[in-house]
Amino acid sequence: MSGRLKKIGSVTGKVLLSLWLTFHVFSVFVAPAAMPPISPLLLDAWKVALPYNEALFQNHGYHFFAPDPGSSTLISWSIPRPGDVPQTGRFPDPAIRPRLLYHRYFMLAENLWSFDDQTQEEIQRAYAKHFASLHNSSQIALNRVSHAPSSILRIQAGGRLDDPETYESEVLGTFDFSTENSESASLAGRF
């Protein structure tokens, strides 16, 4: 009797395991499907697997350098110095070592724009605060810098990858943290 029960238990276990494996493989394959353009059918399938994929940290697109590799994004900062030229910097800074940490900073500049507006705004402010406090300042200005890869023709004509014309800057804002200590941190001025 116990042997029979054991066999039933083993078969049931295997069936349940097989069902989970089927669902897991389905989830793995459907997770990247959410990247647009997408059919309503695939979107529904993706939604079914979403909580499971989020819980296992596998809700990824795997769209490496796709659909088109474009400009890379950097963030530059400028700290005003009374009676002097502003102190400036940019991240990711190639001097950052090890390379994995450099890539973390690179992603801070690169990935931010895929989040919603509120998140972007809060994180830009966090960047500003971080770099301002690193340089003991209460004011800082941030710029978003797009660096387009030079074309083959430009290089053939003697151009370089870091030619100034390949950089394009966009002002993100000026941040003032001088009131932060009095618990009333505010964004002093945004352009």
Binding site: P67, D68, P69, S72, H147, P149, I152, I155, L161
Partner: peptide, 22 residues
């Protein structure tokens, strides 16, 4: 996902990766 991008069809995509200064 690469097939969605014209640059992978024209072949320029790999150059753009190679020429990414960062």
């Amino acid at each position: 996902s690469k097939l969605k991008g014209p640059s992978w069809w024209t072949g320029e995509a790999m150059w753009r990766v190679i020429a990414n200064y960062e």
